[in-house]
Write a protein that binds this DNA or RNA. Structure first.
Lengths: 195, 195
DNA sequence: TAAATATATTGGACAGTGTTCAATTTTGTC
DNA sequence: GACAAAATTGAACACTGTCCAATATATTTA
């Protein structure tokens, strides 16, 4: 029924993303449905496709939000003034993932079709998160070029990711009473010492 | 229709799993379809449901095969006689994942509904893979209880997993010219030294 | 052997999905 | 008010997982 000035374009986008985020958090990636999001905001499925183009891009837009929320979460933790900033980051990493299970999982559940380039806001959100982490890694090791620090950051994030994933998907049960979170911190400390 | 003695129950299962594996390898987890598997083996969709019960359990059965293939792949590499067995394992880990992208990804794409226990053959296949790895970790460190070795194995696998995932899903591009495979090996060496 | 029972197999039906797009309704402009 | 532009709709399409009454084949019994 034509342009509804109930909401501006930007407001409508925000509305859809907020509803989509809630739906994703409740249902998980596999059960996420664009039609359900449309139902929640009271617009038709067509409108969602006009604004976001595809299921994929809607998920990516929500994922970009998740990345921004994650970065904000970590910054808040860092701001709380604990002096062991690496431990603060690792616990923040795991806590965010655990408290936002489905949203965090969706970050990795979603595979982009072939080599379609990622939307800019997604890449930007990821870049901001990486920059935040890199800064702390740089401070923790003191020495080394930016390129080396960036590469080391990649490795430390990969460590955290692997351990966090195993904690959330139950794989950890295969390894006795192994505690992924503590192990991640230990491995990252070892890597920083060796660097 | 009716019972076709063309294939015994076991033969039919094998037929379906082989076709399903091929389809999964070609299409990837997101596009995997039980109907397509039925089409490939020339049976109806109902037959697949009679044998496997659900889409989920069909995927799990294929995933169990992938785990067994992965373990066999690693054993073959270890048998080739290179003396640096840790490096052999890491390269085997990454090579298998790269050569069987979609099948390897499906291992992690698939999330079981809630706390439904995994089928026995899946758990067994996973256990065998872990045992294989644990044996090499035990040899590499020489000392320590079985429980400690198992926990360390979990941590090393998590490191490999995180790095391998970042290599396959393109995340590595965010970290300059970082090479996940080499980094994984370096981190694992550090962890073994520190252990 | 023929009849009765047990077991496989089928494929239509259902509710849901992502995606497209002609038709419709609203808004902005002259 | 008339016209053009833009936004919104929802039916249509091809697909999915899942269920299950009907059917076809095997096996067992008489």
């Amino acid at each position: 029924m034509g342009r509804r000035s109930d909401h501006s374009r930007a407001e409508l986008e925000e509305l859809i993303l907020a509803a989509g985020e809630a739906h994703l958090a409740e249902a998980g990636f596999a059960a996420f449905s664009a039609r359900e999001v449309a139902k929640r905001v009271g617009y038709s499925i067509g409108t969602i496709y006009n604004l976001f183009g595809s299921h994929d891009r809607l998920v990516l837009a929500i994922n970009a939000r998740t990345l921004r929320a994650w970065a904000a979460f970590l910054e808040a933790r860092l701001g709380s003034g604990h002096e062991d900033r690496i431990a603060t980051l690792i616990h923040g990493y795991f806590d965010f993932a655990a408290e936002n299970r489905n949203r965090w999982m969706a970050l990795y559940d979603h595979r982009m079709a072939d080599k379609m380039p990622l939307p800019d806001d997604f890449t930007a959100a990821f870049g901001a998160l990486v920059a935040l982490l890199q800064e702390q890694v740089a401070a923790a090791r003191g020495k080394g070029s930016d390129a080396e620090t960036l590469a080391l950051t990649g490795s430390l994030v990969a460590i955290a990711h692997g351990h966090c994933m195993f904690e959330l998907n139950g794989t950890y049960e295969m390894f006795g009473d192994w505690r992924p979170r503590d192990a991640a911190l230990a491995r990252i400390r070892e890597a920083l010492v060796s660097a």
